[in-house]
């Protein structure tokens, strides 16, 4: 099912769903007439759209708001925090072209601090699906949840069949003991290939598709930390405040430490280009990631 079909199905079954966009119609261009009683394009007004979403939510609606992830999470940040976060309203914030998906748009359009700032809001949850199938498996539960959610929207094809989705539960591939890769969002596809490459070289690898970064699957991560020699975090996000920070907080909270290799954007914006070129240049292709992980593992002499 594509996203437009999903919205039509949701609205036809439940009139509370209300689709909003700040003139970003990429995800629902073909259906605005079909859902017009439950749709509004507010113009290029991200902050005001979030305020309106709060108003609609106060009247029992479940607004699903759309804009580029950068403008939605940053320009409208205080409105999300104040009008959605304080009263804990079930507004669903659908950020498009987050992380590397902004491709050639340049730093103004790169949402690579979105996870960090959204997860800092009390009551807010964060869903970062790996691909379209993962998105489809999770989205209904996310939309039906009583609290606000930030979603890194994407519609990339899947390279693996995903399992059933549960909020706060990671999807685990393999039970390797040498290397555990923690990943979320579109880089899952690369990470899945990394696992295959490393396994061919004789390493024992497991892969966690985290799905929701808040709530985070603390139980599964602690189990992984206890069982594996090296933990690798991979994310198209600044090093600050994303998965690496989540892991660090989780370990500290549990009075633990372990060997961690963080792979993220180290205090710099990425070079704008088509997606494959971005991955190549920034070192996030499966091959480059695998080499980096292997080298690190060997240096450590576990």
């Amino acid at each position: 099912m594509n996203y437009e079909q999903l919205l039509i199905e949701l609205i036809s079954n439940d009139n509370r769903y209300f689709v909003m966009t700040a003139e970003n119609r990429a995800a629902m261009r073909g259906i605005t007439n079909q859902i017009k009683n439950n749709f509004i394009d507010t113009g290029i007004t991200e902050q005001t759209m979030i305020g309106m979403a709060a108003g609609l939510a106060l009247r029992g609606r479940v607004p699903i708001v759309h804009a580029l992830a950068t403008f939605l999470t940053m320009r409208a940040f205080e409105f999300i925090r104040t009008d959605v976060g304080i009263p804990n309203l079930p507004v669903k914030i659908m950020g498009s072209v987050a992380g590397f998906l902004s491709e050639a748009n340049g730093p103004t359009h790169q949402a690579i601090e979105d996870v960090s700032i959204m997860r800092g809001i009390p009551n807010m949850n964060v869903f970062c699906p790996a691909d379209l199938q993962d998105f489809n498996l999770g989205i209904k539960k996310v939309l039906q949840h009583d609290n606000p959610f930030y979603i890194r929207y994407l519609n990339l094809p899947n390279v693996v069949e995903h399992s059933e989705f549960e909020i706060g539960k990671a999807e685990v591939f393999g039970n390797g003991k040498d290397i555990a890769i923690l990943v979320y969002g579109m880089l899952f596809t690369q990470a899945f290939k990394v696992k295959e490459i490393l396994e061919k070289k004789g390493y024992s690898v497991r892969l966690l598709n985290l799905r929701t970064l808040k709530p985070i699957d603390e139980t599964e991560i602690l189990k992984t930390v206890n069982e594996c020699k090296l933990i690798v975090t991979i994310e198209d996000h600044f090093i600050t405040g994303g998965l690496y920070s989540i892991l660090a907080e989780l370990l500290l909270r549990n009075k633990k430490t372990t060997e961690v290799l963080p792979i993220a954007l180290m205090n710099k914006w990425f070079k704008p280009a088509l997606l494959n070129d971005v991955l190549e240049y920034e070192g996030f292709t499966a091959n480059k990631l695998a080499i980096k992980i292997e080298n690190y593992f060997e240096e450590k002499n576990f």
């Binding site: 009683n37 005001t48 709060a54 108003g55 009247r59 304080i86």
Partner: peptide, 24 residues
């Protein structure tokens, strides 16, 4: 009190949402 306010420039956007909800 319908809405926590204090940060300026918030109630009118929220009010537009309330008005839209009623209209629909």
């Amino acid at each position: 009190v319908e809405l926590s306010t204090g940060s300026l420039g918030h109630a009118l956007p929220v009010g537009c949402g309330l008005a839209l909800a009623a209209k629909r």
